[in-house]
Amino acid sequence: MAAIETGRLVKKFGKFTAVDNLDLKIEEGETYGLLGPNGSGKTTAIKMICGLLRPTFGSVKVLGRAMPSGEVLSSIGYMPQDVAVYIDNTVHENLELFASLYGMTPARFREREREMLDFVDLAGWRDDLASTLSGGMRHRLSLACALLHEPRLLILDEPTVGVDPELRASFWEYFDKLGEKGITVVITTHYMDEAGHCQKVGLLRQGRLIAEGDPEELMKKHGKRSLEDVFLEVARRGAE
């Protein structure tokens, strides 16, 4: 069963087409990178996949269910592009809210909280208000909130924006581990170099999927040494 399947997905805002006939099939256990420059429709596509936006046309299925479906939400971990944490609550209180939303037992929460705080390197700030954290730290807290309940499908919208290179590397190390555990990870990013961690990438430009495949194979196919070059090449051809 595909973790995510979209069929001819279209989203228009007035005359502007943000997502244009997007056909995606992301298999379970796959780490999939949705790549594209700012404004290419990545976030809009993700929001339709999560059920936050109503498609103008087309269909979305997540874990076998047509979206929006309340039944699959407990299996999804979602980290929006914005630093979506409660800044007037402590790190612990933020995590506690998400534990309650996902019905975690207190014992399980304590265990997962420890793991997550160690992972995002915020153990020393557990009782600090999120408003006192730096932008990068808030981003890490946001990621911890998405991972806390061990979702089957993790959807991360630009998780590495504003994160320093060292932490970015450790994030990817963790995402790789999640992939090894069979968790489906969907990541949007405009850092093309990060795509090497993905088993499959989709290149988005002006709402359209202009190329898709294994990153190595894409580079080989287009005779390029980086995905950025592949993107530029495909975009140039498309423009012609």
């Binding site: 929001k47 999560c50 059920g51 936050l52 309340g70 939400l73 407990s74 999804i76 979602y78 980290m79 929006p80 592009q81 914005d82 630093v83 979506a84 944490v85 409660y86 800044i87 998400f98 939303l101 996902y102 019905g103 909130c145 998405a146 959807i155």
Partner: peptide
């Protein structure tokens, strides 16, 4: 709405 927390809540099992 602005911080994205609402989006996040709406993608959780919370109704």
């Amino acid at each position: 709405r602005r911080s994205g927390t609402l989006q996040r809540l709406l993608v959780s099992p919370a109704t």
